[in-house]
């Protein structure tokens, strides 16, 4: 009896430490975003005079008038937010689509082997910094600098390999009999694809999509180098702390805002995520 209580207590203790350990930085971020300027450097967890000023700053930098020095470099957060939404969503759709067809082909038709697909991992085997220079040079000549199309193409290209590998696993697990049965009952190859394969592979498409969306959403290095005025959210968040000074509270508010959308999306599709991660069990 005593033993069990002790074990339970110990378990709870470990759990609490783990949760506190991971959550405290987030709590600090949340608390900081509600603190007034004077309190930014105080490590207390609860703001003494909670304020929405930081959030107002995000949406209209001129409204408060107290940080005039920064307003020149700061645009309202709505711009970067919508840019990032467009970039991430479009890049995800492109990468998942290309990835799906590549994976389907590799899985169903005798491709020259996994060795070819292996090369799609190339962009992921080098540190991204190594190919920043050529990208900058060529994007300049292609008018893709400071252009969201540039970022869309770049993100789609560098993440498509994830889509391929995730989806290949899913498509490999789909018995070819389902396709053959559909074909024999008179379905065209396109009907087989859209009525049989894609609905069955849907969890895989969702998993790959979410993964790529989050990568595009949080990417900073290329965004920083390739944009100037049309910055995405990740760059915008970094801009609140500059050589001129550090708007810690505003940055915390921006960070919180930028983490809410992935959180909401993740929550909405978690049902698919679970079926996605357990898809392998269908066969057993």
């Amino acid at each position: 009896m005593l033993r069990r209580i002790l074990t339970n207590a110990l378990m709870w203790l470990v759990l609490i430490i783990a949760v506190v350990w991971t959550v405290i930085p987030v709590m600090w971020m949340i608390s900081l975003s509600f603190k007034t300027y004077g309190e930014w450097r105080t490590p207390s967890l609860l703001p003494r005079n909670p304020t929405l000023d930081n959030y107002i700053m995000l949406f209209s930098p001129q409204a408060l008038g107290i940080f005039i020095a920064y307003t020149a470099i700061l645009e309202p957060i709505v711009g970067p937010l919508s840019r990032t939404l467009i970039i991430s969503a479009t890049a995800t759709v492109i990468a998942v689509m290309i990835g799906f067809f590549t994976a389907y082909g590799a899985s169903r038709y005798n491709s020259p082997g996994p060795f070819t697909l292996f090369f799609t991992l190339l962009t992921r085997m080098l540190p991204p910094a190594t190919f920043v220079t050529p990208i900058v040079i060529y994007f300049t000549t292609l008018y893709l600098i400071d252009n969201i199309i540039g970022l869309i193409l770049l993100y789609a290209a560098t993440t498509v390999t994830y889509a391929i590998w995730i989806l290949k696993g899913f498509i490999d697990a789909i018995p070819v009999e389902w396709e053959e049965a559909a074909l024999l009952e008179g379905a065209s190859p396109l009907q087989v694809l859209f009525k049989v394969i894609i609905p069955i592979a849907r969890p895989g498409l969702v998993v790959a999509g979410l993964f790529i969306f989050l990568m595009a959403w949080t990417e900073l290095l290329f965004a920083l180098v390739l944009t100037n005025l049309n910055v995405p959210l990740s760059v915008q968040v970094s801009k609140y702390v500059t050589a001129v000074g550090a708007l810690w509270g505003v940055q915390a508010a921006a960070a919180l805002l930028s983490s809410i959308i992935p959180l909401v999306i993740g929550y909405l599709i978690q049902r698919h995520l679970i079926t996605g991660f357990t898809f392998g069990l269908v066969r057993g």
Partner: peptide
Amino acid sequence: PARERKVCLVFQEYAVFPH
């Protein structure tokens, strides 16, 4: 091609679309 032959096949397994 298979889909034009008007022949149907019942497989040993995986015969039914799960979705």
